[in-house]
Design a protein around this nucleic acid. Structure first.
Lengths: 330, 330
DNA sequence: TCAGTGAATGTTTACGTAAACATTCACTGA
DNA sequence: TCAGTGAATGTTTACGTAAACATTCACTGA
């Protein structure tokens, strides 16, 4: 910075002013400084900046190693939104999803060059963790139900599930079966609960819940069982992969989709438009979740709020060819 | 640090020594300092450290927004390996894959708190970019063929394709068809070239190349055409998604896999073991690619080497039920 | 004419750390 | 006994920046 100042014939402080876009610098001075910067290939030292300013302009993202598609797309959106706000994103991977590991990630936080944190993870692990956050470190959690202890941004799982079930009921189906996700998953729980609640509201009895583990293979196995139920004309699958397996099982058993059975998925993964038949599904806006996470931490940082609560991102039902009215006479 | 020193009754320098694990501190002094650190919840300021040391202990990863599964798993491995080496990972997303964007990412690098860079991206975009890297900034590129200009770590695409083709020839097939990836992709190019070369070596004529765009849907469409070729008994698909579409097309057309047609994929995505039938495919070791990227930048940083060259990560053929000898009489 | 004003620019200083050098002090061995 | 040695610890200083305060100087208006 001193070299630039010398070459431009000004003081270092003026270089700093130009470098930070502060007002009160003559157009001509500014041009000379910029020229000197280019000449010397000057780049501000971010360590010194951070030290002086007391902030790093960096957000940390704690994730249980990039596992699900949703997490990844949320992370992508976080990185993009953060960049737009002039923040960098540092990854804090947690290899094994244990209390200790999560706890460790949180305590390493203090030494890391990070101003705020976004956690993308099933939140079970945050429960008992006696997390000692560095003072002033703000946290936002994506995709969890810890709204009573953290600021949470989540997809409106319940709303999406409700839309899926209502869509099928609206087509005239007597009831809707559910191919649910694993018991431990909060997202799966909420989708299943909303499915049951929506049937209740309509005065309908929920058929027995069939569970998978999110994988296409588990959807296929569950599908073989569902295909044996003659009165099953509509299935809401808790994600698209399981719906894919279900489609294949129904096809193998000679039950046509959507003529005999209607199927709705959840997620709207890119492939779902190419399934046979193209899948009606609940679109999740991961980009918006990521954006709101960034917005959330930044505003908490700026106002230094300690609050909590949940922001829900609405879903959108995408109607494709896998749903239709039930076969005549049912 | 001063507070800790006062509380422990030592100098700040001794605190620094304990904090960095330097030798020459009595066990008793060390214990007192550690106690004082805990008491005051002291955490070293990473900005000041970076300023003083002249390094950030951070690697930057430039990716064209987290698109493909391979990129994501590579990124995951990079983050994990970096953490093991005491390095953090900062994400530098490039929203649009244009020269300008990539160039921009590279020049922002100078201001970023980053000691080295890993690029995960098709490398077309690096070609013409007049990249002005900050002095001393080392770069490693994953998954590209720019070995003459950068240090590159890549999966052994050619070796994997060769193994796939040889496996099919070894089973007795007269020739092997190829369902290739998009023309612009370097990975697709290398897989297709190796397919052709392996047939050449065996003195066989390569059937016409059928192209998809990596998606299952494109594999399905290509599969419908391949199903019309009565002499097609073995297909090597350039990725597992296209193989999935291919399987479905063959099934629809009544051609049994593996009885009538053998199919090999590439990637070994988790689902491929659950395809119908389970898919023989080429396993890519993304974790190893990521690890080698980190190792590569770090060693270049330490020795300040300016060299380039390519490190290939071997693949492994995973034999499942989608491949078998050709039907009798063929 | 000249005190007063305010924009443009300069000078001093501290952010928290660790390298380089300095000092202390117990112990060794002639 | 005491110079010599080396481990343990302390003091001084600089890393590059930007906030706080200081100075310069052209211009205004009574």
């Amino acid at each position: 910075m001193g070299d630039v100042a010398r070459l431009a014939g000004v003081s270092a402080q003026t270089v700093s002013r130009v470098s930070n876009g502060f007002p009160g610098v003559t157009e001509e001075t500014r041009r000379q400084v910029l020229a000197a910067m280019r000449e010397l290939d000057y780049r501000p030292n971010s360590a010194a900046r951070a030290l002086r300013r007391g902030e790093f302009r960096t957000l940390g993202v704690i994730t249980f190693s990039l596992s699900t598609l949703g997490n990844i797309r949320t992370l992508d959106a976080i990185a993009t939104s953060a960049a737009r706000e002039g923040y960098a994103v540092t990854l804090l991977p947690v290899a094994v999803p244990t209390q200790d590991e999560v706890h460790g990630a949180f305590s390493r936080l203090g030494e890391l060059a990070v101003d705020g944190v976004i956690v993308i993870m099933e939140v079970h692990l945050l429960d008992a963790a006696t997390v000692s956050l560095p003072p002033g470190m703000q946290v936002v959690v994506a995709d969890s139900d810890a709204g009573d202890r953290y600021t949470v941004v989540d997809t409106d799982q319940a709303g999406g599930a409700r839309d899926a079930v209502r869509h099928l009921l609206g087509l005239g189906h007597r009831t809707v079966w559910h191919l649910g996700g694993p018991e431990e998953s909060f997202a799966a729980q909420r989708r299943a609960n909303a499915w049951r609640a929506t049937l209740d509201e309509a005065g309908l009895l929920a058929p027995p819940l069939v569970r998978g583990d999110w994988s296409a293979e588990s959807g296929y196995r569950a599908g073989l069982r569902l295909a044996e139920q003659p009165d099953c004309t509509a299935v809401f699958a808790a994600n698209d992969q399981m719906a894919l397996g279900l489609l294949r099982a129904l096809d193998e058993r000679g039950r046509k989709v959507p003529d005999d059975v209607s199927v709705v998925g959840f997620d709207d993964i890119p492939e779902s438009a190419s399934f046979l038949p193209p899948l009606t599904t609940v679109h999740q806006d991961f980009a918006e979740v990521g954006r709101l996470c960034v917005e959330g931490v930044l505003s908490k940082m700026r106002q230094d709020v300690a609050g909590y609560g949940t922001t829900l991102v609405p879903t959108r039902l995408v109607r494709r060819r896998s749903t239709a009215p039930p076969p005549a006479g049912r």
